[in-house]
Nucleic acid binder design. Structure first.
Lengths: 111, 111
DNA sequence: ATAATAGGTGACCATCTGGTCACCTGTCAA
DNA sequence: TTGACAGGTGACCAGATGGTCACCTATTAT
């Protein structure tokens, strides 16, 4: 009878939605964006985007800072790294990252 | 109009469930387990566990091998690493992993 | 002051998802 | 060869989730 619903539950739930992943992609490229700016890149009402950003913030994947009437959004990579460390130990990491990097190189080379 | 539903959609959906994460945890400790063995560690019917394993396999997080009437399950770390690489670049990785490792050490020290 | 702008809340509905069951197939041992 | 065991399918139901809307607050510029 394991303790289901681990404390990272919010992180995984947050990542489960494609729109939220897209938002993280945008913030990965450049963060400090406002809700309105992010909204303009999505075919969705402001409310939908707001809801998604709230989920990301609740999961700690996005942190925010208020500046006047604007709210700036920043990507926080820590929870992502913790996911990684949960199922990839130091030994496996070396093998897997090498494998992935090689695969990426090959694909870029042929593209 | 971005292409929502990226090709990793199945991976993130698979990770969104606490039971499936628990299964990955068990396989991380030791893989090559059968459905029946995994089922015995969960308060759920065999069918529920089977459904979860199917999702994990469909996402490529678990790979299987048949052996007689048994089906053995193995953890595949590659999709996890790809999640990592999507939002953590080489430069950030050094800083974040150092930070996380430090935090882990401190917590283990005080525990 | 006041209008425009940026952000926020709670309710609501269509759809997806987790879990169970009745029932079926393939493999092993006595 | 026949019973027990490991795995598998399709339908079904309760609850969670994504997205929208009507409506509200706070900050800025004229």
């Amino acid at each position: 009878m394991p303790a289901m619903k681990d404390d990272d539950d919010r992180v995984f739930k947050a990542l489960a939605d494609p729109t939220r992943r897209f938002l993280l992609d945008r913030l990965f490229r450049r963060d400090g964006r406002t809700l309105t700016e992010l909204e303009s890149e999505l075919e969705m009402t402001r409310f939908g985007v707001m809801k998604h950003l709230r989920v990301l913030e609740g999961a700690g994947l996005v942190v925010t800072r208020k500046s006047g009437r604007e709210k700036l959004h920043f990507l926080n990579p820590v929870p992502i790294r913790l996911i990684h460390d949960r199922w990839i130990d130091k030994y496996t990491e070396r093998r897997v990252s090498a494998l992935v990097d090689l695969k990426t190189e090959l694909e870029e080379g042929s593209a």
